[in-house]
Amino acid sequence: MQTHDEVFTILRAALIELFELAPEQISLEANLYDDLEIDSIDAVDLIDHIKRQTGKKIAAEEFKAVRTVGDVVEAVLRVVNTPAAN
C-alpha cells in the first residue's frame, strides 16, 4: 500500500522525466492541461508510465475525469489500493 505523499513523489518525478517540467510547476493543485500543458497523447504516456511503476492500469474512463495532479494521485491510490480480483 502506498501513501498519498509517496504517490505524489513518484508522479512528480514522472512528470519531470517524461515532460521535462520544472519541479516548481508541479503541485497537487496544478491543472494537467492548463498549467502543465499535458495533452491527450501525453496523458496516454503518463497512464503507461503509471502502469509500469505500479503494475496496475488506470482505466481510460477514470483518467478522463482527472484534471489536476491531485486528481491523478487519488486515481492512482484507488487503483493500487484495490485488491486484485480473483
Rank of each mutant, 00 (worst) to 15 (best):
36 L>T: 00
36 L>V: 00
36 L>S: 00
37 E>F: 07
37 E>A: 10
37 E>M: 07
37 E>P: 01
38 I>L: 05
39 D>T: 05
39 D>E: 06
39 D>R: 02
40 S>P: 07
40 S>E: 11
40 S>K: 10
40 S>C: 08
41 I>M: 15
41 I>G: 11
41 I>R: 13
42 D>I: 05
43 A>G: 08
43 A>I: 07
44 V>I: 14
44 V>F: 08
44 V>L: 12
45 D>I: 10
45 D>Y: 14
46 L>H: 02
46 L>N: 02
47 I>A: 13
48 D>Q: 13
48 D>V: 14
49 H>D: 12
51 K>F: 10
52 R>E: 10
52 R>L: 07
52 R>P: 03
55 G>L: 08
55 G>P: 05
56 K>F: 14
56 K>S: 15
56 K>E: 15
57 K>S: 11
57 K>E: 12
58 I>P: 00
59 A>D: 14
60 A>L: 15
60 A>P: 13
63 F>V: 08
63 F>S: 03
64 K>I: 14
64 K>F: 15
64 K>P: 09
64 K>S: 14
64 K>R: 14
65 A>R: 08
65 A>G: 07
65 A>N: 07
65 A>H: 06
66 V>S: 02
67 R>G: 08
68 T>L: 05
69 V>F: 04
71 D>R: 06
72 V>I: 15
72 V>W: 00
72 V>K: 02
73 V>E: 03
73 V>C: 04
73 V>L: 05
74 E>C: 06
75 A>F: 03
75 A>S: 10
75 A>M: 04
75 A>V: 05
76 V>L: 02
76 V>R: 02
77 L>R: 00
77 L>T: 02
77 L>Y: 02
78 R>N: 12
78 R>S: 10
78 R>M: 09
79 V>A: 04
81 N>D: 08
81 N>C: 09
81 N>A: 08
